[in-house]
Simulated assay, not measured.
Amino acid sequence: MTTPKPVSHAARDQVGRLLALVPYLHQHGEVRISEAAEALGVDAAQLDKDLRVLFMCGLPGGFPDDLINVDLDALEGEGIIRVDNADYLARPVRFGPSEAAALVVALRAIEQSASAETREVVARTLAKLEEAGAASAAEQIHVSADDSPGADLLPVLQGAIDRGHQLEISYYVPSRDEQSSRIVEPRAITRVGDATYLDAWCHTAHGDRAFRLDRIVAADELAETVSERAAQPRDLSGGWFRGEGETVAVTLRLWPDAQWVPEYYPVVDSTPGPDGTLDVVIDVAGEAWLQQLLFRVAPHARVIAPREFAESFTANARAALRLYQAGGVG
């Protein structure tokens, strides 16, 4: 069995830094690396590494005249960043037919489930694209309504958000295999990755929660208005569940016979462990679900953290073993 490659964010992070670095250098011209590092919020040593990648970037073709030029002598000798042959970065962005089509499709998909204010912004953007002729190749594109689970509830959810009303929802949590009724104060509907979420303040949990639309079984708009707790959408750039108590990050060490787990369950992180093992981090909403998973993969998995989860599973496994040894299980 081939060991899955560890999840790595290094390349993605570097691309993000380069996208911020190039406009900054184009605007400021010659700057000291310490000054640029402070402005961009990155370590100077890391910025030096990024600059050595930058001179391999440029226009298609890959010839010397196509690539951005970084003065390495000035960088190494004086600690000064000098970049040229990047004037094309100041030119207005022009969309090709395929790029325009992709942008129009995305905007029209957003328009279907967006708030009234967002729909107005999307409509203005589409109009500008059409005026500029960028959307000519996409004029015949039609985006059908989302038929994924929970999509039929979008009008009810968005209507409650627009009118500032609370909702009563019936929500299914697969990791606990249970369905519950909750009163929530909705803020916004947001798509993250392949899933759409309702961001809300939950009366049952007494805190902020994010509910996947494909797990909302039913929803009814209530007459009660939302409070200040749902006045503004949250900044969810750091993730839905970080610090909210909705899930617990559990680190599992998987031996080869259990390394199918990250193929079936979403993992937050994955790194190689000792002796061919794989360490994965999973967001778990309930200890009962975790124990079911551990019994399935035993003895080819072990809880590394949190320690109390490892101790709890060990105690339950020993109790189950005693039943077998005492003949209590036929």
Rank of each mutant, 00 (worst) to 15 (best):
L222W: 01
E224K: 12
I183Q: 09
T247R: 08
G239R: 07
V184T: 04
S237D: 15
E228S: 11
S237N: 14
A205G: 05
A210D: 15
D177P: 05
D177N: 10
G243M: 07
D235A: 13
E185Y: 10
V226K: 00
V226P: 00
D177C: 01
T204I: 05
W240G: 08
T190E: 11
L222S: 04
E244D: 14
R212M: 01
L254S: 02
A200I: 00
E246Y: 13
A200D: 04
T204D: 01
F241C: 07
D235I: 14
H206V: 05
H206K: 11
T196H: 08
A223Y: 13
P256C: 02
V250S: 05
V184R: 02
L198T: 05
R253K: 07
L198V: 03
E178Y: 08
R242S: 12
S237E: 15
S180I: 09
T204W: 07
R234K: 08
L252K: 05
R191Q: 12
V184E: 03
A188Q: 06
T251V: 13
R215C: 03
A195H: 15
L213D: 00
I189K: 01
A205C: 05
D199W: 10
W201V: 09
D208Y: 14
V248Y: 09
T196V: 14
A205T: 06
R191T: 06
Q232C: 13
L222Y: 02
R191S: 14
T251H: 10
S181G: 13
A258C: 09
E221T: 15
P186R: 01
E224R: 09
R234T: 04
E178H: 08
D257P: 07
A205Q: 10
L252R: 00
F241G: 07
A249P: 03
A188C: 04
G243L: 06
G239P: 06
R187H: 03
W201L: 05
L254I: 01
A249I: 03
L254E: 00
W255H: 11
V250T: 04
A249D: 11
A231D: 15
A258Q: 04
A223M: 10
G238V: 04
F241L: 11
L252D: 04
R215V: 06
T225F: 05
R191L: 06
S237T: 15
I216P: 00
G243W: 06
A231T: 12
V226H: 02
A205P: 04
R242L: 10
T196F: 10
E178W: 04
E228K: 05
L236Q: 11
E185M: 10
V250G: 02
Y197C: 01
Y197F: 13
L252P: 08
D257I: 12
